[in-house]
Design a protein around this nucleic acid. Structure first.
Lengths: 228, 228
DNA sequence: ACACTAATGGAACGGGATTCCATTCCCAAG
DNA sequence: CTTGGGAATGGAATCCCGTTCCATTAGTGT
């Protein structure tokens, strides 16, 4: 089943792992997670499902690979400046990538420790090092940042998909959510009611970056504390 | 399709939404996300799939309901002390609940704005209020905490499931991950290599709670800053 | 030219969610 | 006590998915 190394292409327009992944990303982007099926894929590549299995282990392999190709591209585009700024750029880049390709969110959570995750840990970790976080706390800091970035971005992407399923745009969706929350039982849900209004016209991306700053502040005070 | 209100039970051992949800939770707990199928469910309830659809809209409805029942129970068990301590308790409670019922993680991300999420936002938000966070920042703080809690817990649960699929216990799994990371290219992945050792015997739960403290510290400095 | 293997592609299988519908059950009106 | 009708049931049937199987093809070293 493992593909042997081969220096020469066999047919001109042959199937290849890369071309399959490229087509998968296109299908995922246009049709969401359900858009990627081996039937749709084989039709798009004008071949049969069997041929695809020669190059790919199974669907989860395919999903991880598609994910990795997008994550790699995203991280590669980051330009490095100060550590804090670079972390913000990584965060924003991933947030935007997951907004554009909502399927990445769920793909990442079902591929722990795999290639895309390592890329992300690495790019964040390098900045953490430059922030002079003591070695014993580096993993905590990097892990917290990564979890937060993936958690919020995925949640945000899921929101967008839910809205799309109901044929609403973002504004209408938030409007509906805000209305629902404001009609909750005041006894049981005072907080949800009180923030309902703010939900309506908040900016997810800005909130997300505010959260990143919150964590960066926390890392800073942790660093100061451990130096003392 | 909507079930009309009925004050009287029709048959003694009849199907009910609650009994279906209870059975679903049992199936999910014993067999993971794939354990819940309408076939298995109808067999366990000794009925047909059609009967279930009378009480439940579709599978996502079922999953959200199962999720809600566990989340509600978890949050109900929290005993309120100081705001910080209560937030830690909520966080730990959800972390543990998601560890025990790994399927909750993915169920939550695919049900944004729905009942279980509202419960969580509410319980966290009430504590945020008591921390005297200015109203304009309450949503940022509560949202960041929730995203972090769900993000890390889900990731952790996903790790556990991956390990289980490979028939490894947690230690062996971390061992394998650590080894893989330590063999990465030193040029490209210096950070992942350097933390590989620490991964081996780290405590996910402790790291998680450390991350919560990180965010709480951040919230504190935000509060101080906005007061000045 | 031959044989051998990498690669292909389409048919078939098992199992999932969901729908459909004939049937059963219970209450309430006559 | 009968009976009409809606609530509820359960099993068969549908449609689509991932995956496997296998006969066939296309290049390549001999």
């Amino acid at each position: 089943m493992v593909k042997k190394q081969r220096s020469l292409q066999r047919r001109e327009e042959s199937l290849s792992r890369d071309s399959i992944i490229e087509a998968s990303v296109a299908l995922l982007d246009s049709g969401g997670e359900d858009g990627l099926t081996f039937r749709a894929l084989s039709e798009r590549l004008s071949t049969g499902p069997g041929a695809i299995y020669w190059h790919i282990a199974d669907k989860s392999d395919l999903l991880t690979a598609a994910c990795d190709s997008v994550v790699a591209r995203t991280i590669h585009e980051i330009v490095e400046t100060t550590p804090e700024e670079t972390i913000r750029a990584i965060a924003a880049g991933l947030f935007d990538a997951i907004s554009t390709h909502p399927w990445i969110g769920s793909a990442l959570t079902s591929a722990p420790g795999a290639s895309p995750i390592v890329r992300i840990v690495e790019s964040i970790g390098q900045q953490i090092c430059q922030l002079h976080v003591p070695e014993t706390h580096q993993w905590t800091a990097a892990g917290a940042l990564m979890a937060f970035i993936l958690g919020v971005s995925s949640q945000n992407a899921a929101n967008g998909q839910l809205a799309r399923r109901q044929n609403l745009d973002r504004t209408d969706f938030l409007e509906a959510l805000s209305t629902t929350w404001s009609q909750l039982d005041p006894e049981e849900y005072p907080f949800a009611r009180s923030v309902a209004g703010r939900i309506r016209d908040h900016d997810d991306r800005a909130d997300f970056l505010a959260g990143i700053d919150l964590i960066l502040m926390g890392i800073e005070s942790m660093r100061l504390r451990s130096q003392a």
